[in-house]
Design a protein around this nucleic acid. Structure first.
Length: 569
RNA sequence: UGGCGUGUGGCGCAAUUGGCAGCGCAUCUGACUCUGAAUCAGAGGGUUCUAGGUUCAAAUCCUAGCACGCCAGCCA
């Protein structure tokens, strides 16, 4: 429907972040002969979220800005956690964000043989050894944050013996947990990662790509630097928690004497009213707090896509939040601002009534219908106009009528005249109630001279409200979303509780029997959200909608000064 | 009482490397308005973590503290 606009290096106007500065300096000093090669290395063990989007835009963005490449590499060294379903969704999400890895799609598992050969080299050089300690024994000897560890009794066995043992590990002779390959570094290092870290373990699990070809798998700290090296990565950008791993990253590459990319760490994204760890997101899915990874309340890429966020707004968001090394929490309002800005510019405007109240125009001829011309997008005249049917019976928003109006309430109330957008001025003169005293219908008169929405005598009305012709309305389900978590910082919870205690019970409100103008019944899936005038942006749900039975997800509300004033009062 | 890292308006980031602390978001006014939207104009908000020191001049350099984050998986 709408062509996605390709990502542009839109950071030019913004101050450069520290990573881009390093890249620029390296280019200036010709450190890598003009090459800029980055990579986005997800583990296919879950769906991508907005935090990943930050990393994706950083890595692909830097490559694009510098005429370089960004590799998509699946870090699949743990067969017990990874699945093909995730590699598919990850690719879809990166593509949706607008990035293209071209032919540079890789899997760490493609390097298993090379990795194995490098491990052998390390053993030969006396830099690694096979250790017979159990996990528990290794843990006990690791020492603590303040005390050094103690060396493994197998640390000094001969390279020949380790080589033999390693080959037998690979051949499947040993059970899981009985042997590991460890780097021989320094058990007294203040950096625990350097205390003879395990670099290979036995895992008799079927790998989603290599099947049963291997029963030993390299650890992240070994596989990652080498994968970067093999691919000729120049800048290996990762998050802060890997800072402590950099010495090990450098050690592996230095000892092997191979291409040595530079690891650079930045702070991961945090968002208010949101959790952003795969573990917690998985929990929300598994425990049924949401309908799935793509629930529109989820901060996953697939969730926000289904919610109606656009790739353009996501990229804009990522460039606005910046890249730095201090832990921080971005205000959710920043994200909303970005979607609103994009959607305001591009979304078609239409009318939909969420909570209908029947209006009968008593002086309008029964059975008559006419068409009113409505502007599709005032922000973009090229979008043209459309015809909206008008009749004697209409629906307006319940909120747009008050029998006893609060102060400064501009909308419909007995005796007051308001404008029906693109329609007529109407004046309310009668209220119909049910047995319980609820207003079920308002009866109005219209001024035929105000057709189109302007009065020839120049009289003004304070409010313009939206409406839908009852005879032509399309029925729809509309889902209103709010923050998944009521608390700004969901993890802040008293002893004994957990983040799910902060789930917002009102994060989803499902409205049925909503009344939409006919054009909204024709919206095709795959486009951008539509603005329901005065309400917000709504996105046709690609999964639950059926022909003639649209379901709309509210992407974001419009800013509402009235509501804000009400809340204050 | 280990190592690594980070502290700049409410929030996220800048500050040409020592030269009057700026931008975005948020907030609040006002204007305009056939969306209480958008737009436009404006406002408030800072002990640059603290204390010393160097200097004509410090967010930036030095010293000593403090706070916060991460690290003791055969996860990544």
């Amino acid at each position: 429907m709408t062509e996605p606009t390709p990502p542009t290096p839109d950071n030019a106007a913004r101050p450069q972040d520290f990573v881009r500065k390093i890249v620029a300096e390296d280019l200036a000093s010709n450190k890598w002969n003009g090459a800029v090669v980055t990579r986005f290395p997800p583990e296919p063990n879950g769906y991508l979220h907005i935090g990943h989007a930050k990393s994706i835009c950083l890595n692909f963005g830097i490559a694009a800005e510098n005429n370089g490449r960004c590799h998509l590499r699946f870090d699949d060294t743990n067969p017990t956690k990874e699945e093909m379903e995730y590699v598919e969704s990850i690719q879809e999400d990166v593509r949706w964000l607008g990035w293209d890895w071209g032919t540079d799609k890789f899997f760490a598992s493609d390097y298993f043989q090379q990795l194995y050969d490098y491990a052998v080299q390390l053993i030969r050089d006396g830099k690694a050894f096979v250790c017979d300690l159990t996990a528990e024994e290794i843990r006990q000897r690791r020492g603590t944050l303040t005390e050094p560890g103690t060396e493994s009794p197998f640390r000094n066995r001969s390279a020949e013996e380790s080589l033999d043992l390693f080959a037998r590990m690979r051949a499947g002779e040993f059970d899981e947990g009985t042997h590991t390959l460890r780097a021989r570094i320094d058990m007294t290092s203040p950096n625990l990662n350097m205390r003879d870290p395990v670099i290979y373990r036995i895992l008799k699990a079927t790998h989603h790509r290599t099947g049963d070809a291997w029963c030993i798998y390299p650890m992240y700290d070994f596989a990652h630097p080498i994968s970067d090296s093999i691919e000729g990565i120049t800048h290996s950008i990762c998050t802060l928690e890997f800072e402590d791993h950099r010495p090990l990253y450098d050690w592996v590459l230095r000892e092997l004497g191979i291409h040595h990319s530079q690891q650079i760490e930045f702070a991961r994204l945090n968002l208010t009213n949101t959790v952003m760890s795969k573990r917690k997101l998985l929990m929300l899915v598994r425990d049924g707090h949401v309908s799935g990874w793509d629930d529109p309340r989820m901060p996953t890429i697939s969730g926000i896509r289904r919610r109606g966020y656009t790739p353009e707004s996501m990229r804009d968001f990522c460039s606005r939040i910046g890249v730095a090394k201090s832990d921080s929490v971005v205000d959710f309002a920043m994200l909303e601002h970005c979607v609103r800005e994009d959607l305001n510019r591009r979304s078609p405007r239409m009318m939909g009534v969420l909570r209908p109240l029947r209006v009968v125009i008593t002086n309008y001829p029964e059975g008559q219908t006419e068409m009113c011309e409505a502007v599709n997008n005032p922000e973009d005249p090229a979008d043209g106009t459309r015809q909206v049917p008008f009749g004697r019976e209409l629906f307006i928003e319940q909120d747009d009528f008050r029998e006893v109006p609060p102060p400064k309430y501009f909308r419909l109330t007995p005796g007051r005249e308001v404008r029906l957008r693109y329609g007529y001025f109407i004046t309310c003169n009668e209220v119909v109630k049910d047995a319980d005293g609820n207003v079920v219908e308002v009866r109005c008169t219209y001024d035929p001279a105000t057709r189109g929405g302007d009065s020839p005598d120049g009289r003004k009305v304070k409010a313009t409200i939206h409406w839908v012709s009852a005879a032509h309305a399309v029925d729809a389900e509309v889902r209103l979303y709010d923050h998944l978590f009521a608390a700004e910082f969901p993890d802040n919870v008293p002893e004994g509780g957990d983040f799910t205690d902060n789930l917002n019970p009102a994060s989803l409100e499902v409205l049925t029997g909503c009344k939409l103008e006919p054009a909204l019944g024709e919206v095709k899936p795959g486009g951008i959200p539509v603005q329901f005038e005065r309400l917000g942006y709504f996105h046709l749900d690609p999964i639950d909608s059926a022909p003639g039975k649209p379901v709309f997800n509210r992407t974001a509300t419009l800013k509402d000064a009235w509501q804000r004033a009400q809340k204050k009062a």
